[in-house]
């Protein structure tokens, strides 16, 4: 998440001092995404330079300056919230590559490889769920972020399940076609060959 837009979001609640922004920034995101808090003041300078925020220039020290969002800043925040992130390019997924490789290697049981990853993912999900379990310290931002992570991991598990099913079907078919070519008439064998 961009520091720039987080700060604009905090400023959209009302004018704030530099030190206050730094503090709120840290508590609003620090639990969930470790961000570089050190960049808060330089980012504030840039927001001001770009006309997205304004400060009363009486103070030298950024910490003591009072910042407020400009109209342009409000528009920028609203635009950013509604801009879909670029998900059009599939990420290079290490797990997908491992399963693809395993499915081609004759001495590797791809189903075993799949299960190792499935178990690992479900264990990770158990750890996340356990964090959510305790409702006495309920924190909405944290719960939303944990849900996002659970859905992401779940989609990977589901991909593994579907890969598992697809590979099983293919390996069943190839057993059948081996039986075809072993026991069947030559014409059948040709037909099997042609299918490839």
């Amino acid at each position: 998440m961009s520091i720039r837009h987080s700060l604009l979001a905090l400023l959209s609640e009302g004018p704030k001092y530099g030190f206050q922004l730094r503090q709120e920034f840290e508590t609003s995101t620090g639990d969930v995404w470790p961000l570089n808090v050190g960049q808060v003041y330089t980012t504030l300078q840039r927001l001001e330079r770009d006309g997205l925020a304004q400060s009363d220039d009486v103070e030298e020290d950024e910490r003591q300056k009072n910042y407020r969002i400009t109209e342009k800043g409000g528009e920028e925040l609203s635009r950013w919230l509604r801009t879909p992130p670029d998900l059009s390019e599939p990420p290079r997924d290490e797990l997908v590559i491992k399963v693809l490789v395993a499915s081609r290697l004759p001495n590797v049981d791809v189903f075993d490889v799949i299960q190792v990853h499935r178990r690992y993912l479900v264990q990770l999900m158990q750890q996340w769920t356990r964090m959510k379990e305790d409702e006495s310290h309920f924190d909405l931002a944290f719960a939303l972020a944990v849900d996002a992570e659970l859905f992401r991991l779940d989609s990977v598990v589901r991909w593994l399940d579907s890969a598992d099913g697809r590979l099983r079907r293919v390996s069943l078919e190839s057993v059948e076609s081996t039986m075809d070519s072993t026991f069947a008439l030559p014409s059948n064998r040709r037909r099997t060959g042609a299918r490839r």
Binding site: Q115, R119, L121, V122, M125, Q126, T129, L150, R158
Partner: peptide, 21 residues
């Protein structure tokens, strides 16, 4: 559903009638 299973203390994986993991 792995999201639901993740509430459990222990998850047993069944495959063709066998507990595989």
């Amino acid at each position: 559903d792995a999201k639901l299973a993740s509430w459990a203390d222990r998850v047993v994986f069944l495959r063709d009638g066998q507990a595989v993991d």
